[in-house]
Design a protein around this nucleic acid. Sequence first.
DNA 1: GGTAGGGCTGTGAGCGCTAACAATGGTCGT
DNA 2: ACGACCATTGTTAGCGCTCACAGCCCTACC
Lengths: 351, 351
Amino acid sequence: MSQTGAHPRRAPTMADVAQLAGVSHQTVSRVLSNHPNVRDTTRAEVQRAIEQLGYRRNSSARALVTRRTLTLGVVACNPTLFGPASTLFGLEEAARDEGYMVSAVTLRRYTAKALEEAIDHLSDWGVEGIVVIVPHREAVAALAELRLPFPVVTVEGGHSLPIAGVSVDQELGARLATSHLLGAGHRTVWHVAGPPDWLEAEARVSGWRSTLEEAGAEVPPPLVGDWTPLSGYRAGQELAGRVAAGSARRTSADVTAVFVANDQMALGLMRAFREAGLSVPGQVAIAGFDDIPEAEFFAPPLTTVRQDFAAVGQASIRLLVSQLETGATSRDGERVVIEPRLIVRRSSTTS
Amino acid sequence: MSQTGAHPRRAPTMADVAQLAGVSHQTVSRVLSNHPNVRDTTRAEVQRAIEQLGYRRNSSARALVTRRTLTLGVVACNPTLFGPASTLFGLEEAARDEGYMVSAVTLRRYTAKALEEAIDHLSDWGVEGIVVIVPHREAVAALAELRLPFPVVTVEGGHSLPIAGVSVDQELGARLATSHLLGAGHRTVWHVAGPPDWLEAEARVSGWRSTLEEAGAEVPPPLVGDWTPLSGYRAGQELAGRVAAGSARRTSADVTAVFVANDQMALGLMRAFREAGLSVPGQVAIAGFDDIPEAEFFAPPLTTVRQDFAAVGQASIRLLVSQLETGATSRDGERVVIEPRLIVRRSSTTS
DNA sequence: GGTAGGGCTGTGAGCGCTAACAATGGTCGT
DNA sequence: ACGACCATTGTTAGCGCTCACAGCCCTACC
């Protein structure tokens, strides 16, 4: 509307604004960066010119000279799952508040190669640092090898690396769930674990196992799933068989309580039990992990361990930004641990 | 390891590579952009120098001169939900394949102001175009006002705007579900709708209504939820009351079938029915929408309408990139419609 | 009244890269 | 043997911005 040039409408530059406002480009720059030493009338004039032209600072030029792209990268996998998605969300919001932009790259699978490519892609775009959501053993190892020229923060990357990281205390979560079930009078608690190469799965197994051991309870062999409802369903079918078998003669390893490593598998498990004619919590008590929004409305509502994913996202950005500002390229292993919380619902209560 | 300078290790520049390889910086540039007219031996030499120095092209400098940031923006809301998350995922992957980076901004709520801020934020970082996931009436209207200096593609933004867009045929989905239920012998089908200001909710209502009208069935007043399981639960409680009342004397508006506007609400609905002692599908048949991964494992498994979110993401990127390449800043209303598919499961089958 | 100092503004250089053109040397045709 | 032509390489000029510094003018102080 304002500018009807014959030229293909090149975006206005700082010089254009300067000319229109009758000042030098440097003064425009000062106005834009809120430098105090600009007369109010001048500032107003410049502002007016900026608005009139619809001027926007060219971020590339700015980045070139300041050597700051104000962009952070994120590498994530399975971003359609509730956990990663929530983390990503919290992370992006926190980054925006800190004045950074975030670019995400999502992986289909956690191979060292895919991870490296993702990081490469981010580097190409000049990110100043990255958050890697790598709850996966191989990926963490690969990351350790990389020695990147910018700060890295891991999420759920375990504590073995000299890299800053944020994680939820998975082991504590597992202990909470397991001891809750034991406390309800069950002789022991069975476990459906996540894939063995996932650190979170491992930590949950270990929390479950040690709780049983400390309580002097028998430790039944954990079943293994892959986080999907289907795998939980299969595990449920197997466990249902054992319940039936066990009911002939009672042993200390009867299946009366199951701690499932995530809510989706718990859902599958409950379907299998339902189909086998087993009542939950009547014959078998169940606890899950994550507290997805649906969990409260399962049949029956699922006892589970809530993780504050948004807090994880925020903490990881804080960690990353602090590294950026102190200029430390690799802070050896500063870690933030977030405590999960047990949410008790009907799937585990006998009343 | 290679470079042990006293200086704080400035990232190597093209000139550094050129010097090491004994060529001009322009030759390095040529190698990097795969220009054909470079002698093989020279190319190899340069490659070696690049690797030795760990050189990476400075994206800001490149963007400055080429006027291409190769970055696309995405604005989304509720990215923890399965639908938006999947769309985002598909979108990012497609963008990466096309050589673009994507930066996402997530909104807590769909206000015109939040949307504008998000787009502002993206503009500041120099995106070349944006995808806006705006299944929300007010947001769409606000977007139409904006007149942005770069291409925009909407997702689920309705067909009223002269803006390119991708959407799933929500109305068709609703028709599929509704006529499936009618086909199973129900006199009519009740509906639990999404929030009225959501275009998707509206389209589903309209598909449901017209299917009933065409079949000559009574159109009961739709209940309204907010996509959450809780709101579905409340709607379920209300409907359960009607079933009980209706059982006294049969009318043509008996609640024997319900089409719920998304799977999460359907889950809540089923819980309410369960608590009211109603059997699904025995007394009431239910169909949902979305086909979230959990739906297959609900009690009973949920009949629903599957949307191919990944395809939506891909299509939106294709549309955006094509606008970018043809140079059209606003292609008036090129649209891609993706057909949903009915997935029949136990919640709606009488057998 | 001279000089010091501070508020405000302009000038020049250069960030690292690509595009356009210039220069070089060799091959080929006649 | 000479010019045309091509492949290969170098040179130069910015892209739009910020930083460092240089100027100007006005107030304040001795």
